[in-house]
Design a protein around this nucleic acid. Structure first.
Lengths: 214, 214
DNA sequence: AAATAACGTGACTGTGTGGTCATTCTTGTG
DNA sequence: CACAAGAATGACCACACAGTCACGTTATTT
């Protein structure tokens, strides 16, 4: 990801380094803004360059193409998310009763919260494009969506296999929860739902609990 | 929607009429196929005409442009959906206790089922593009999505206002249910979830019930 | 069967886009 | 300070696309 050669001068706080980071950030932010407003596919490289206040040719110094930029925008949130899942899985493997199981799932929620707070626009972009076909510029986002569903299902299936949970079909419950969480997050981040976040969390928890107990 | 002039010859089962209907169906089906495979924005009019086995210029005889085709593809399912909501609302206005309330919501489910069975690809397209920005070719789909959420919220809020339901925030519950239903439908129609539909329905019902009772 | 008008065709035009590149500007180095 | 190399620019090219149109084809009407 990114086109910058490994060799570059004055890496520490030099002016070159600062400029490079600034340009990268500008391009990512410009892309994110435009993607949210018009959808990834309708935004052109010219648009992005203009919005970032730089020349088109310069874009290609930093990114291969649009998919590469999308991947670059999503990457930090992507990593944070995978880590949250990792931590939850680790906790889950130690769980031995309903309380520790619940704590493990709480780990996931706690891991995801800073993500929505730290990268709200990236999360919005993810939700906006997560069902895109798995080819084209939006491919990295779709891949992330598939990953999330997969791991959510795994988390539930594992608990069932361990006898910690007795639900009929772990896939169905997991997907239902993912869908509910994503829809609420989407509405909230879009400003359509001006409910207090803790109230949303409360509903989700009771929803998960009911999923656990049915 | 559609560009055909109101005046046209031999309306009944004449050859003109049959040809016209066939072309319309071919164009809609071709568009739907390609939209699902590549995403609405990446499909060109040339692609659609070619897939439908006709010349490009002919496309414009039947549709204004791509947004118009999208609207034409979605329209039947759109109407069926609005009707299902209408019927549910009518039943809801007659409801006076938990049983009749539950029956009213069941009306909605029963109204939606034939939709997913009758137009599975249209539903998939809707789910794929429902969070698109509200400008461009995907606008009709986004508008439908907004409509669905709005009415789902209304349905819940009404029940709460009537004292039939006692949940903390009707918006949150409604959106959670919409999210769960849509995600499960998406996974099912994408072939990722090969669970029996009645099992999915069972989980959804218990989910709605838990939403009602919390 | 002749006339009429919708239907269907594909070449054509103008515009917009992805990607390149010679050139100029800026930063780092000896 | 001079020189090298990265950074930035915007003109440029090839191409793909939306939408049009003059023309040929097919159904309908009289």
């Amino acid at each position: 990801m990114g086109r910058l050669p490994p060799e570059r001068p004055g890496q520490p706080g030099g002016k070159r380094d600062r400029n490079r980071r600034k340009r990268l950030a500008q391009l990512r932010e410009a892309g994110l803004r435009l993607f949210l407003e018009h959808g990834v596919e309708r935004v052109t490289i010219d648009d992005i360059a203009k919005e970032a206040g730089t020349a088109k040719g310069n874009f290609y110094r930093y990114f291969e193409d649009k998919p590469d930029l999308v991947a670059g925008i999503v990457q930090p949130a992507d990593e944070a998310l995978r880590n949250a899942f990792d931590r939850c899985e680790a906790a889950l493997e130690e769980a031995y009763d309903e309380a520790t199981l619940f704590a493990a799932y709480q780990t996931l929620a706690i891991g995801m919260l800073p993500l929505a707070v730290g990268y709200p626009d990236v999360v919005r972009l993810y939700l906006q494009e997560s069902r895109a076909p798995s080819a084209g510029a939006r491919a990295p986002i779709r891949a992330l969506a598939d990953h999330i569903r997969e791991r959510a299902v795994y988390l539930t299936r594992f608990a069932v296999d361990q006898g910690l949970l007795s639900i009929r079909d772990p896939r169905i419950s997991a997907l239902a929860v993912v869908g509910a969480v994503e829809q609420l997050t989407w509405s909230f981040l879009s400003g359509e739902l001006d409910a207090p976040p803790d109230e949303i969390a409360r509903t989700l928890i009771s929803l998960v609990l009911s999923g656990i107990r049915s």
